[in-house]
Computed example of a mutant assay.
Amino acid sequence: MTLTSTPANAPTRAGAATAASTRRRGAAGWLPVVPLLAFTAIAFGIPVVALLNGAFTVKDPATGATSYTTANLDASLHGAYLTALIGSVKLSAVCAAIGTVCGLLLAQAVVTSRFRALREAVLTASGVLANFGGVPLAFAFVATLGNSGVLTQHLHLRDKGWDLYSFWGLTVVYLYFLIPMMVLTITPALDGLRSQWREAAQNNGATHAQYWRHVALPVLAPSLLGGYVLLFGSAFAAYATADAIVGSSIPLVTLQIADALSGNVLVGQEHVALALSLDMVLVAGLVMAVYLPLQRRSARWLA
């Protein structure tokens, strides 16, 4: 009988071959992502670098020499620029809060409806209205609810204190596209609420309000906050609608950036405009820092 011996280093060779195969599969898995990473680096990386460079650059008008300083950031946090930044944060926070509540109620009504056609109609309309903004939206509201608008004249709204060209008037305009956006955002999360949770709460004697307070809302809280962040960002970055309706009557940071870039107020404030843009990025980053941890928690419950 012949005995076949196995080399002592065979397991080592097998392990090395497996590791090499794993590395090759990992490298091959990264290849499809390379175009996306390249596009991201070009489309987002270059503007971010230009923004940071311009925000910290000051040009001497006499010699043309440039130097790096924090003077632009300091200027963006004082005077009219600070007022505009606070005004944008306030407007965005109010619009996002109202849009989140109204969008949640509308989405819940759609999700619990027995009519599938109603659900599809509302979601389709929300997809259209969520992307309807800019000058066309401003024109529609001016023609409808402006000082000489159809409804303003017919319902005598000016006698009741209505003013489209005010803070609350602009809030109503923003809600036109923010509420549909919230409906699209929160509907999948509402679909993820399991019927067993409601049944278990009812079997334990919980009322409808107690179910929402102790079960549904805690589970939906990260999704609601995510929707709030999305609505806040949309309102915070809106420019064309506000510019067409209120112009400079309401201080907003996007309008201040446009004025600084075009030199409507002061000449040579382009770098201050970039500093204001950096302030907007920082505000959005702070809001996202609150949202991301809660989103991971929501994913575990709704999975």
Rank of each mutant, 00 (worst) to 15 (best):
V58F: 09
L266D: 09
G64N: 04
D191Y: 08
N147M: 08
T185I: 15
V172C: 06
D163G: 06
G285F: 09
R158Q: 14
T4K: 10
P293W: 06
A96C: 01
G233K: 09
R24K: 13
L36E: 05
T207P: 00
W162K: 01
F232D: 01
P7I: 12
T100H: 03
A20Y: 09
G134K: 03
R158K: 15
S113N: 09
D243G: 09
A80G: 07
L157S: 04
Y68M: 13
R296A: 15
T254A: 11
G133S: 15
Y174A: 02
L224P: 00
T112M: 09
P61F: 10
P11K: 08
N72Q: 15
L190V: 06
S277F: 07
W162Q: 06
L225D: 01
W301H: 13
V128C: 05
T40K: 07
A93C: 05
V142G: 07
R119A: 14
G134F: 03
P136M: 02
A117S: 14
S5C: 10
G99C: 00
P35M: 11
R297S: 12
I98K: 00
G146K: 02
T83Q: 11
L85A: 11
L274M: 14
A10Y: 11
L261N: 08
L155K: 02
L184N: 05
D243W: 14
L286E: 02
V283P: 00
K160H: 08
A140V: 02
G103L: 04
Q256F: 12
A75F: 07
E120K: 13
T69Q: 09
L255F: 11
T2D: 08
L105E: 00
A237Y: 04
I186V: 13
L137I: 03
S195Y: 10
